Deep mutational scan, measured.
Amino acid sequence: MSHKQIYYSDKYDDEEFEYRHVMLPKDIAKLVPKTHLMSESEWRNLGVQQSQGWVHYMIHEPEPHILLFRRPLPKKPKK
């Protein structure tokens, strides 16, 4: 599979999560399941490479070739 064609967005966040999206080329996108969110082993098997802790959290129906990921931000110590 062509890992060079996978595009990784910059990371962005809110108060709770860090987010990123990953755009897959058409040949890989056709392998994305339409019935469920992928486990880490499933998206890694497609060639997506990112650190541990990312969760495929949403399917964007109009653009199924874009995978939406998030992971919890580290808890800030209370002052």
Rank of each mutant, 00 (worst) to 15 (best):
R20K: 13
E16C: 14
M38Q: 01
L37D: 00
K34Y: 07
Q49M: 09
K78T: 13
S2H: 15
Q5I: 15
H65L: 04
G53M: 04
G53P: 03
I28V: 12
L73M: 09
E40G: 04
K75A: 12
T35Y: 12
Y12G: 14
L73D: 03
Y57D: 00
L24R: 02
H3V: 15
P77T: 12
P33Y: 00
E61I: 06
G47S: 06
D10E: 15
L46H: 06
A29S: 09
I6W: 08
H21M: 10
I66T: 07
R71K: 11
K75P: 13
K34C: 07
E18H: 00
L46P: 03
A29W: 06
R20E: 02
Q50F: 13
I6L: 09
H56M: 01
K11L: 13
E40V: 05
M23Y: 13
P33T: 03
Y7M: 14
H21W: 15
P77R: 12
F17N: 00
E40K: 05
H56Y: 05
E61T: 09
K79H: 12
H60W: 10
K34P: 09
H60K: 12
L24H: 01
Y7C: 11
S2F: 12
V32W: 02
G47W: 06
N45F: 05
E15T: 06
P62G: 14
R20S: 05
R71M: 03
E61H: 08
H21Q: 15
K30P: 06
F69P: 01
G53S: 11
Y8V: 06
D14Y: 07
R44Y: 00
R71L: 01
K30D: 11
Q5G: 15
S41T: 13
L67N: 05
E15A: 11
H60P: 06
P62W: 11
K75C: 11
Q50E: 02
Q52W: 03
L67T: 01
I6P: 03
V32N: 09
S9T: 09
R71G: 01
R71P: 00
V32R: 04
P74F: 09
R71F: 00
M1A: 13
P74M: 12
E18S: 08
A29H: 07
K34S: 10
P74T: 12
I6G: 04
Y19G: 02
L31W: 08
Y12N: 03
P64Q: 07
S2A: 15
S41R: 13
K78M: 13
S41P: 13
M23T: 13
V22F: 01
S41I: 10
L37F: 00
Q52E: 14
W43C: 06
S39P: 06
V22C: 06
N45K: 13
Y7T: 14
P77G: 11
A29P: 06
D13M: 15
R70Y: 00
P77M: 11
K34Q: 08
R71Y: 03
E42V: 04
Y7W: 08
P77Y: 12
R44P: 00
L46A: 00
S51V: 03
R20I: 06
V48W: 01
